[in-house]
Simulated assay, not measured.
Amino acid sequence: MNNQPSLSAPASSDRSDFPDDCPDGLKPRLRLFFSVDLVGATHYKQSRNRWRPELLSFYRDFDFILQTEYRAFASNHTGRLSSLEFWKSNGDELLYACDLLCLSHAHGLMQVWLQALNRYQALHTPGAEHLDVKSTAWIGLFPVPNAEVFFRRGGGALDEGLARDALMVQSELRDEWYANAANPTITRDFIGPSIDTGFRLTGLATPRRLMLSVDLAFLLASGNGAGASPLNLRLSGKQRLKGVMDDQPYPVIWIPVDRDEWMCAELEPVVTDRELIRSFCKTVFELNYASVTPLFLEGERQSAFDWAPPYILKRIVRHWHEEVRNRDAITVPAAIAAG
């Protein structure tokens, strides 16, 4: 008997109920992550005294170009959108995140990102010394199997009883964040298996290859966004990524950043047929379902991705019930003692 989760949404009668009163921060969300990283930055900084202008220009120019492209996309997009947000910097790498709502949103964001990469590279005059960039994109489902973690800047007061329980500390900070995401005293980070996979994939990226996680590639190959140009997906074999999918070879799937140049530069066999790539990704899903991202798009209706898998919803509800039990175990005795 096959107990693997299905890639398709369950029938309405088979869908698990999700509590309406569950905290907003525990509702399932699929997020798209982008990384853009300077190539050769370590050598560049160690081989000259004046290196700051190049890096500061990268921080300024790429973010400006990206936000300009995103605003243009958002102005022409019908329906609800979530913003493309700066997540954090990691040395010479900039990271962005966005809640995905529908398939056209995913395709549009990929086009925005590709346009930003091309525009940034076009800023530099041929022959002039500058650092190129490489990029990776991946997705992750929250709050399971991935997780948000929250930190309070400068410390801060927390109920003494709750502070003894790490789960309750995160619960309190999460609820504060979702009540007011603009709160300057709380900062958010993302952790989990999908985040680890994305960072591993950055090692395969090149200035001409925007690397994709296999779950994102499957999503993008499952249909075209309304009004968006088809994405040129490419599959060129497999490579092992340490710790990912039990160290089984991972699909090397990418999008050419410069179509003309990749046709001359890439010599290894490359699969370009979208349906073949989708079928390949589906097989990887079925063989490694515990290691890839379950797909759910909140804004989709009547599609294969319009409901989070029941086993994911059950894990979220268990997590929430654990929070409630822990909170009651701490606060109820304290209230009785105070009364």
Rank of each mutant, 00 (worst) to 15 (best):
G198V: 03
S194Q: 04
W254Q: 05
Y96I: 00
P23A: 05
E266G: 02
G203N: 06
A329I: 06
L95T: 04
P207Y: 01
R152P: 09
S35Y: 01
A41I: 02
F218C: 05
C98Y: 04
R327Q: 05
R52I: 12
E85D: 07
V39W: 01
Q46T: 15
P5E: 00
M110L: 14
P184S: 01
F280M: 10
A9W: 04
N180I: 04
L141P: 14
V324I: 10
L210H: 11
P145H: 09
R164N: 03
S13L: 07
L220Q: 11
E85Q: 06
D17P: 07
C281P: 13
G140F: 14
P251H: 14
N232C: 10
D196V: 13
L295Y: 12
P10H: 00
Q170A: 07
P294K: 00
P251D: 14
F18K: 06
F199S: 05
K314S: 09
P5C: 02
C281A: 15
L84H: 02
M263Q: 05
W138C: 13
P28L: 00
S222V: 11
R50A: 15
K45G: 02
D189E: 07
S104H: 09
L26S: 07
F62L: 00
L212V: 11
L162P: 14
T283V: 11
D260N: 06
H107L: 12
V271T: 15
D215T: 15
G156A: 08
N118H: 11
L141D: 13
S75C: 02
F280S: 13
D258F: 07
L233H: 14
F190M: 04
T293P: 01
L212S: 12
A217P: 06
A182R: 05
R327D: 01
A166S: 08
P143F: 14
R188S: 04
F280C: 08
R80Q: 09
A304T: 02
A137V: 15
Y70N: 00
I312Q: 03
D21I: 06
E300I: 09
Q67M: 03
L94E: 01
V252M: 05
L295K: 08
K27G: 02
I312S: 03
Y70P: 01
P5I: 03
P309H: 00
G161V: 12
E148K: 07
T202E: 06
M245Y: 02
A290M: 06
R274I: 15
A221P: 04
F18H: 10
G339Y: 13
L233T: 12
T42C: 07
D215A: 15
V284S: 13
V144T: 14
S171I: 02
A147D: 10
A106D: 12
L103E: 10
S35F: 05
L220D: 11
N3M: 03
V169W: 09
L287P: 02
L109Q: 14
P269G: 12
E54D: 11
W254F: 11
L231A: 10
D99C: 05
